[in-house]
Nucleic acid binder design. Structure first.
Lengths: 158, 158
DNA sequence: CAAATAAGTCAACATGACTGACGTATTTTT
DNA sequence: AAAAATACGTCAGTCATGTTGACTTATTTG
């Protein structure tokens, strides 16, 4: 009982997670670079694409960054016509965010790269693996945020 | 055949991966903050801990950062006695890196947090899930780097 | 002895986070 | 109708972590 603060160390999964995530995000980086964008732009573009008409404050909530951090990249995305803003119909203080056609196309190219990597991995694995993987990633999320994330990802696949 | 550049979009896994990785790295951040360290310090400490006596150039290769980036955080870790350097016995140009007791202890605390999160997830899943997850993460790594990563992670678990 | 290698260091810069304060338009509450 | 709250934007300054390129020092190798 005295020495039983032991936790099986999971060095293998810790390190695999690190390398996997690095390469997973590395794919889009190449395309983003060409436009002078970074990962911050990717995240904003992605979540606006997936949540058309999202409010700025909800986007901040999802990304868990500050208004200032978002402001910079959002401004660039708007200036370069990847994202457009429209005043809310009900509440005109809001600037609802949408991807433009240019933004949608670019976002699709990025998602395709990442989906390809995922699909190639899943194809090499036993049937039903994708459900296991989905479950694992879901359980790795903070318990009190899971339902919120579940709500977010259960969107039409376009 | 003309429209067959279609790739099943994996928005669910893309987003789950994003949120899972964020929370996975969020655990250590709290402890790191208390010491004025960041994720860069964590990575260096981790890989030195897991590869005692590693050469600086090999560490650069693993982390894929520049000498200058490494230099800054490594200097802090050495100054604050988390890592020590010893000249190589065969080649005295080398400064082989080891964690001190202080460094080892701290690193263990961090790994424990991450292992706990992983274990809690795996426990809720069907038997054999950890092998599926391991396989998935492995296949998400760039093909030409997999063997190198495999070599890295196949270390004694202490 | 010359060349290559391992490591450290300097200066300068970019990105993307942060804080805190303040402005403006609009809606809600009193 | 005035006051308070809200949604959003913006300014100024800071920090962490990454980059490049050039240069030094110690040591090993050809």
């Amino acid at each position: 009982m005295s020495k039983k603060d032991s936790v099986s160390p999971r060095f293998d999964l810790i390190e695999l997670f690190f390398f996997a995530y690095r390469d997973f995000t590395g794919d889009p980086d190449v395309l983003l670079d060409e436009l002078g964008f970074g990962r911050a732009h990717h995240r904003v573009l992605h979540f606006v694409h997936r949540n058309p008409g999202i409010r700025v404050s909800d986007l901040l909530e999802i990304l868990k960054i500050t208004k200032q951090s978002l402001g910079r990249v959002l401004k660039q995305l708007v200036d370069e016509d990847f994202i457009c803003q429209e005043p809310g119909a009900l509440d005109r203080r809001q600037r609802l965010l949408y991807t433009t056609e240019k933004g949608t196309d670019f976002c699709t190219r990025l998602s395709k790269l990442q989906s390809q990597r995922i699909n190639k991995a899943i194809e090499l694995m036993p049937d039903g693996s994708d459900e296991i993987v989905r479950q694992f990633l879901y359980l790795m999320i903070d318990e009190n945020e899971r339902s919120e994330v579940a709500r977010l990802i259960s969107k039409q696949t376009d």
